[in-house]
Design a protein around this nucleic acid. Structure first.
Length: 747
DNA sequence: TGTACCCAGGTTTTT
DNA sequence: CCTGGGTACA
């Protein structure tokens, strides 16, 4: 069927030549190398609109995949504005969302129960812990986090327990054993974790010829956002879905690949041109976000990376101001600098919203927060627990889950004694043991176990079972929101948190109320199931929603406030004024990423940070910083040296500072005053150019040690007599040495 | 069952 | 230094 097409000309009228080339490309594979701020989303949405308008492609033939719900929602909304045909039936979503959708439709073929539930990361960890207990493995020897990470990594490689041979070392055999038991437990409970969603969907489309043919026939065009973030499994799935005839339109930026530690493989971008025949590259290099100075800083820095696809950002909107660098005495001084500058910007007419403070580690926010609070500057921290991840919310959801799935052990264990009802760990242990021996759920064990197993606690357990049963009966006819309301009351959760004291408890009660209103608005938004989608009950839909879209991090985003976040969290955002703080070796690049292999990704992270700024970019480092309780002598980040000197100026204090004045805790009276920025030809301070350490030793310098041989200086720590130096030796590994004792010679 | 203390450990995080 | 998790007691 040909849809009524409309005039496609206005679609591309406002695009620049590179954007137009991408949008109007013939129906063939394309890799769009989209620099930061080059109109990536614009190209993606216009490409979809172009396909519909000019190529007469039905929206039903298009699959658009993103990584975050936010990006998916934005894409759909913007496409909707561009085309005048209905696109409701078009598949736009996250990898996980799309996988989930397929699994719901083909749950039989995927060998899942119709009402399967989704485990989030926290649920998964709890389940791993339980599995370890069942296998009698001590969790200090088998750290649950490590185990969960390993399992997820296997799933990302599409590896199932049965793919491992019996050989392999002891550790691996144990891992496989745990993986097996974990899978079995998931199967019994009818739950899937995040990685499993993708793996099942991949296996489904790989192994079921009919389903594979169906989707290949259907999705003629597959568009993928943030392609540099695809993991192995996602890439293979895309290839399977595309088959020989599907047309891939991938958009991404290899220079912004910062999630390799999470499985993302930037190499997939490089592989596209060979795996997808005829795939041509289109570069978007014109930047519409930042000033020329900021772009030069970014270009110069990222040029040091190897194995790039290569691109150079440019703008025609002027140079702007150079990047302003501040050498703080310590982290308090740094925070004060940030706060003062924010005040100046606000006085000059900026909103708080216009400024973002970016840091490498979440732990850096505390000192900044204190300074902001002291100055009564409103701020918001991105990151941290999201709504549906909060303890009280997960408690309530666990009760809801139990109403529908008594065999959901994860939920059972979570709330069987919340609020406390006399079912302690010993009792739960007995239940677990009984359930394990009989291959049953905890619920079944609780019902059958009886007095013989549970002794005195049996009555309490029976009460709990009766509570769940009676809540289920009472809420059978009720709407989702009424059910939720009832469950929060009847379970005793509200009383439980009512009795707790403190601000925290108050917030928890508010969150429980918020949950009720969330269910209320969710009810109103429920739409009839799309094409062939089985009608799911509202509760399952809501639980899915909760797992797949964990919600906003913090309430009140409407308020005008300074934005604090990690560099990772800043990806995809932009701000007129950006502060990058903590530009110190060991902090950024992070200590655990200072070796060659990982440095490029840190540099990309720095590149991401720089390219967030529209007009004004500040960078700062502290000469001393307290980290893990000890004061460290800091060395400026090498990234500062790697930024071309002519686009950076140092802000110099007008008055000299008496260093002793900056004793810990004493920062109030010692505020520095700032002169006007030095002219841009001001040379960088000595410290930056040479990165001199103490005693004539420099960071990164090759040195010789009498016993350990040759090595490279990684960092300095401590003061005076107690100063230590970390050296990575060729043969002897990395060591901390007392500088006064080590007698290091330049090599 | 709840709390007080001890100890280890301490990037980055979406789904 | 600060946090979270685990253990030891009241």
């Amino acid at each position: 069927m040909r849809l009524p097409s409309f005039d496609p000309a206005p679609l591309v009228g406002a695009l620049n030549p590179a954007q137009r080339e991408a949008v109007m490309a013939p129906p063939q594979h394309r890799l769009v190398l989209a620099g930061a701020g080059s109109g990536k989303t614009r190209v993606l949405t216009h490409r979809v609109a172009w396909l519909i308008a000019a190529e007469n492609v039905s929206p039903l033939s298009i699959l658009a995949v993103t990584f975050t719900n936010k990006a998916a929602a934005e894409m759909r909304a913007r496409i909707e504005q561009l085309v005048d045909v209905p696109i409701r039936a078009m598949w736009v979503g996250t990898f996980h969302g799309i996988a989930h959708r397929m699994l719901r439709m083909h749950y039989r073929e995927a060998d899942l129960p119709q009402n399967f539930q989704i485990l989030d990361a926290d649920d998964q960890l709890r389940l791993v812990k339980r599995v370890l207990k069942n296998l009698d493995l001590a969790d200090d020897q088998w750290p649950p986090k490590t185990v969960a990470g390993w399992i997820n990594a296997q799933k990302e490689e599409a590896r199932r327990p049965q793919h491992f041979s019996d050989e392999g070392d002891f550790t691996q055999r144990q891992f496989v054993r745990i993986y097996s038991a974990y899978e079995e437990s998931c199967r019994r409970q009818g739950v899937v974790d995040f990685a499993e969603l993708l793996l099942r969907a991949f296996e489904l489309t790989r192994d079921h010829a009919e389903i594979q043919a169906h989707y290949r026939r259907r999705f003629r065009h597959i568009l993928v956002d943030e392609f540099q973030d695809t993991n192995t499994l996602q890439y293979r799935w895309l290839r399977t879905l595309a088959g020989a005839d599907g047309i891939l339109f991938a958009v991404g930026d290899d220079d912004q690949s910062i999630y390799s530690w999470r499985g993302a493989r930037v190499e997939h971008m490089m592989r596209l041109t060979t795996d997808f025949p005829g795939c041509e590259i289109v570069r978007l290099e014109q930047n519409y976000r930042s000033t020329g100075m900021i772009l030069s800083a970014a270009n110069g820095l990222i040029a040091r990376n190897s194995a790039r696809l290569g691109k150079q950002l440019w703008t025609d909107s002027g140079d702007g101001e150079p990047v302003q660098l501040y050498a703080a005495y310590n982290e308090y001084d740094e925070a004060e600098f940030v706060v003062n500058r924010i005040r100046e910007h606000v006085a000059a007419g900026h909103r708080y919203d216009d400024t973002a403070v970016l840091y490498r580690m979440g732990a850096q926010s505390r000192v900044l927060e204190e300074a902001l609070i002291r100055e009564h500057i409103p701020y918001r921290i991105h990151g941290g627990l999201r709504f549906f991840e909060r303890q009280e919310i997960k408690d309530a959801l666990a009760y809801l889950r139990l109403l529908h799935h008594r065999d959901d052990d994860t939920s059972f264990e979570r709330v069987v004694n919340v609020p406390a009802r006399g079912i302690g760990s010993t009792t739960v242990e007995k239940l677990r043991e009984y359930a394990r021996r009989h291959g049953q759920s905890l619920w079944a064990a609780a019902r059958e176990g009886g007095d013989a197993v549970l002794g005195r606690a049996a009555a309490r357990v029976r009460e709990f079972l009766a509570l769940i049963e009676s809540m289920a009966a009472e809420t059978k006819e009720l709407s989702l929101s009424k059910t939720t309301e009832r469950v929060i009351e009847r379970s005793g959760l509200r009383d439980h948190y009512n009795k707790e004291k403190g601000e925290q408890a108050e917030a928890r009660l508010e969150n429980l109320d918020e949950l009720i209103s969330a269910t209320r608005s969710f009810e109103l938004s429920i739409e009839p199931p799309a094409e062939g989608q089985p009608a799911l009950d509202p509760l399952t839909q809501f639980l899915t929603h909760a797992a797949l879209e964990a919600g906003e991090q913090q309430a009140g985003p409407g308020e005008d406030c300074v934005q604090l976040m990690t560099l990772h969290a800043a990806k995809g955002l932009e701000f007129p004024v950006v502060f990058m703080v903590g530009m110190e070796h060991g902090l950024f690049p992070h200590v655990r990423a200072t070796d060659e292999g990982k440095l490029d990704e840190e540099r990309r992270l720095c590149y991401v940070g720089i390219t967030r700024a529209r007009q004004c970019l500040y960078m700062s480092y502290a000469e001393r910083r307290r980290l893990h309780g000890v004061e460290q002598l800091c060395v400026p980040s090498q990234f500062l040296r790697e930024i071309p000197h002519h686009v950076m100026v140092e802000l110099r204090p007008r008055a000299h500072v008496v260093r002793q004045a900056f004793a810990p805790g004493a920062h109030g009276p010692y505020r520095r005053e700032w002169g006007t920025p030095a002219p841009s030809h001001t040379p960088l301070p000595e410290s930056l150019r040479q990165s001199q350490g103490p005693q004539g030793l420099a960071l990164g310098q090759r040195v010789r040690h009498a016993r350990f041989g040759e090595g490279t200086i990684l960092q300095f720590d401590g003061d005076g007599e107690r100063m230590r130096v970390e050296v990575r030796f060729q043969a002897a590994g990395t060591k901390w040495l007392m500088l006064s004792v080590a007698n290091l010679q330049p090599a």
